[in-house]
Design a protein around this nucleic acid. Structure first.
Lengths: 206, 206
DNA sequence: GTCTATAAGAGGATAGAC
DNA sequence: GTCTATCCTCTTATAGAC
């Protein structure tokens, strides 16, 4: 894979963005990682760094969209399947030393309010993931509304759990989120709210 | 609030990071936003940009930790409370034009594999949120394990839903994730997996 | 403790030979 | 289509007067 110069540049950039995000990747890094000289980068991608990032995100996003259907396939209970998806994510993350798995989520967080072209690209990837998951769950008998809802929840919760797990270097956020998302908490009673239970603000007047 | 020069610098930096993240905020921006000259920044924070960001994140994180207990207080059913938290988040986000709400999550995504000092700072904030939420739910009658699990799930799902909502400029990820998280999906049956339902990879050979 | 001027380097992008 | 040399801007950080 990655035969042409173009493809080599894109896969090298996706890999760099997976680790360092968008802003922290320099064109110099792409030159070093891809082996292509700087002139070739601008020859193939006249839009510069932003265009390279955009195309790399779209290609990486398409590959990751297959993951949820693949992991759900062996299960015939939605709750079990959801939990299995998060468990697999936890295992993968621990095995790779809590490195980032996919560049889309972290780059999305970085560019949502700053680089409109890349916000649109990451938005398109999220939309494709939701549409693909919705079609998959619908094919397995869920109504369109339910299929879409569960897909949205899996995508958002997975992105958030990845972020917290990566930050804490701990799989608990993934395993726990998967379990809670599968089970839900409707009908669990809470005692009357106690004022004293609200934690105090720790002001940093150091 | 923010009387001293130190505090002015920290609040200005937190506000800048909320919008632009860490890397895209230049010291020049902090100078402009805080009114303090560059020399004062390095006088009060010898550790430079990273130290300023670290202290700003800790201070901002402490304030946001109060949000979950505050929003949960009126509810005596856990599922209802969870849904209310996400609904409130959706309302706030729409009212502010889908701007980022809190700098912690987006900066965490940016620095987790690159700036160890800030990874530790964001990890400490997440840990405080979970500990605070666990104590709160325990005070409302949940067992310690259940209290911790539901807090972890709320924090991770909320961060992920914020990210996707901000990227799509749409509240659906927040409202839907809240609803699904509250309800859960255990026991929902799935039909046999159909191979054809797996979406194809869209290669960007444009 | 406040502020200005400047150093030293890294950033993205381009021109133009081959 | 490949590759090198270079431009100009912007970055963080420091020195040192006040």
């Amino acid at each position: 894979m990655a035969r042409t110069t173009r493809e080599t540049i894109l896969t090298a950039t996706a890999e760099l963005m997976r680790v360092k995000g968008f802003g922290a990747v320099a064109m110099k890094d792409v030159v070093a990682a891809s082996g292509a000289p700087i002139g070739s980068l601008y020859h193939h991608f006249p839009g510069g760094k932003t265009q390279i990032a955009r195309e790399a995100l779209v290609a990486a996003g398409a590959a990751y969209g297959l993951l949820i259907p693949t992991l759900m396939a062996p299960h015939d209970d939605l709750g079990e399947g959801v939990e299995a998806v998060f468990m697999q994510a936890a295992t993968d993350m621990a095995e790779t030393g809590f490195a980032n798995m996919c560049p889309v989520g972290s780059v999305a967080a970085e560019v949502a309010d700053t680089v409109e072209e890349l916000r649109e690209a990451t938005a398109a990837v999220f939309t494709d993931w939701v549409d693909g998951g919705t079609a998959y769950f619908a094919s397995r008998g869920l109504g369109t509304t339910a299929a879409r809802e569960v897909t949205v929840a899996i995508v958002t919760a997975l992105e958030g759990a990845f972020l917290v797990a990566r930050t804490l270097r701990d799989t608990e956020p993934l395993t726990t989120t998967g379990r809670v998302l599968a089970r839900g908490y409707v009908g669990v009673p809470l005692a009357a709210a106690a004022e004293s239970a609200v934690p105090r603000v720790t002001t940093s007047s150091a």
